[in-house]
Simulated scan of single mutants.
Amino acid sequence: MKTGLILFLLVLCFASSIFANEKDSLVTMDGRTYRVVPYDSSGVYEQLIYEEEKQITSIGSTVAGTLGLSLSLIGLCGVYLVVTFDYDGEGYNAGALLIPFAIVGIPLFSYNLYYWIKEPGHVRRRDELQRQYDDYKKRREGAKISALPFLDFINDKVGIVGMISF
């Protein structure tokens, strides 16, 4: 009777270990591979963080906006020179040469100004999602409850031991 019970528990432990090692499924989205685990929101958090990072402007747009602002200021100085000097003065000729800088700089600066205004919202959202994801990982890994089979051959005892780890 005891031998049959011990054999049954060993078979039960072996069967549960087979199902515990089941591979997680993988999903590829936007060239990135995500691990999909039942009841796990890690992939959702990672995808949301990735989407917010795509919306944050790069160094190229910052340089282009700064260049646009510089060209706009140079061109506006040219407009000032044209307005304040007479038609036959040297200031008028210099101002007339600087006006094309404003024509190029103002649209370039205006286009990048829009992204500079909306970027802090994406940065805050990404940081908020990252904090939520870190909290989720801490909660997920916080307490683990496990039930392990207990076999004591010396005292002829068999049972299940419950463990809670933090």
Rank of each mutant, 00 (worst) to 15 (best):
D40L: 11
I164L: 15
I154P: 02
I154N: 09
E119P: 00
L12A: 11
Y50T: 04
Y111I: 06
R32L: 07
D127E: 14
Y87P: 12
K144E: 13
E90C: 03
I59C: 05
T28V: 12
G43E: 08
F101G: 00
P149E: 03
I103N: 00
A64P: 02
F166K: 07
A96Q: 13
L108T: 02
S41L: 14
I154T: 15
L5M: 12
D86E: 15
E53S: 14
Q132K: 13
N21D: 05
S146T: 10
Y133H: 15
K2N: 14
F8G: 12
V37T: 15
I106S: 02
Y80L: 14
T28D: 06
R124Q: 08
Q55R: 02
P120V: 00
R35W: 05
K157Q: 15
A102W: 00
E22P: 01
S165P: 01
A96K: 13
R126C: 09
V83A: 08
E22S: 10
D30E: 13
D127N: 15
K2H: 15
R139Y: 10
A96D: 14
T28H: 09
D152L: 07
D127A: 09
G68P: 01
L5V: 11
Q130T: 11
I59F: 14
N21T: 04
Q55W: 01
Y92V: 07
Y39P: 09
E128Q: 09
D135G: 07
A102M: 13
G31S: 09
Y50R: 11
E22G: 02
D134I: 10
Y39H: 11
V36K: 14
L9W: 09
M29K: 13
A20I: 07
G89W: 11
F150V: 00
L73N: 02
K54C: 09
Y111C: 02
Y87G: 13
G121D: 00
C13R: 01
K138H: 09
A143Y: 13
E52F: 04
G65Y: 01
F109A: 02
T66C: 01
G105C: 03
L12D: 06
V79H: 08
I160P: 02
L26E: 06
E90R: 05
L129Q: 04
P38D: 11
L71T: 00
Y92H: 13
K144W: 07
W116V: 01
I145A: 14
E141L: 12
L151I: 15
I99P: 03
R124V: 08
P120W: 02
P120Y: 01
I117N: 01
G142N: 10
E46D: 15
K2I: 13
G121P: 03
I18L: 12
A96I: 15
L97M: 12
S165Q: 03
G89E: 11
S58R: 10
L67R: 04
S61I: 01
V37F: 08
V82T: 09
I59G: 14
I160A: 04
L26P: 00
S25T: 05
A96P: 04
F8A: 13
L69M: 06
